[in-house]
Amino acid sequence: MTTIPQQQKESQEVISVSAALKEQYDAIRALGSQKAWPFQTGNPLVAFNTGLVGLVSNSFFRRMLMVRRGLFLSSLPMAAIPGITMTLVYPMVISTPILVGDIQCPLCASLRAGALGLTLGSVFPFLLSIPLNSALAISYGTMEVPMFSKKTSFSEALKFWQKKIRYFKGQFISIAIFQTLMFAFVADRQFTLAHTELDVQFVKASR
């Protein structure tokens, strides 16, 4: 009967996710800000950029619907909701899986982060600004919005929004591409740091 060496037993020890993350973040802090920036600065950066996309989308729809009042009323939620959402989601979907070894290849990390940047980092703030500013336009009587009018059919409302949004299409595509690439870059740097400076490959987190 063969016995497992003590060192191998220790390497196979299963620890909790919270314990694994604590060890990893302690190790990240010990690296210093210059090396640890993908985790210390990267996560706030993607959240900040998502909030910025919310402000840009809000500004576009305010101009499109000729809303001159309620700037603070629309700007605050359009910056806060996407930004806070990304603050919670990005670590859960990208950073934590990288640190506990659930993502095993840099391409997987970049693709997952890029998809997150496209959807929650670009499309979500854009769509969120539509009902908010439409409600303001109706409240202040600046423009009749077909989406909220019982007098217009669905096809008429769809044509209205297609006509309006097409002027923002080029800017939105540029924003979406930038967000996708930026999220993918941060995830790639996080993966590289985790697998060169940290012992991620030896972490086995219990579920």
Rank of each mutant, 00 (worst) to 15 (best):
T3S: 11
Q7H: 06
I15N: 02
K22E: 14
D26T: 15
W37K: 08
G42L: 03
P44L: 05
L45A: 15
A47T: 06
T50W: 04
L52P: 00
V53I: 12
F60H: 12
R62C: 03
R68L: 10
R69N: 09
G70E: 00
L76E: 01
L76S: 01
P77L: 02
I81Y: 03
T85P: 02
M86H: 00
T87Y: 05
V89N: 03
Y90M: 01
P91H: 02
P97Q: 01
L99E: 14
V100E: 03
I103A: 03
I103V: 15
C105V: 10
C108I: 04
R112N: 13
L116A: 10
L116E: 12
T119A: 14
V123A: 12
P125R: 07
P125Y: 05
F126R: 09
L127G: 04
I130R: 05
A135F: 08
L136A: 07
L136G: 01
S139W: 13
S139V: 08
T142L: 09
M143Q: 15
M143V: 11
V145N: 12
P146S: 07
M147H: 11
M147C: 10
M147D: 13
S149A: 14
K150T: 14
K151I: 06
K151E: 15
S153P: 06
E156F: 05
A157H: 04
A157F: 03
L158P: 02
L158V: 00
Q162E: 00
K164C: 13
I165A: 15
R166T: 07
Y167T: 12
Q171N: 10
Q171I: 08
F172G: 11
I175Y: 07
A176W: 08
A176Q: 08
I177A: 15
I177K: 11
F178I: 08
T180E: 07
M182T: 07
F183M: 06
F185I: 01
A187V: 00
Q190I: 03
F191I: 01
T192N: 06
T196R: 10
E197G: 00
E197P: 00
E197H: 11
Q201V: 11
Q201W: 09
Q201M: 12
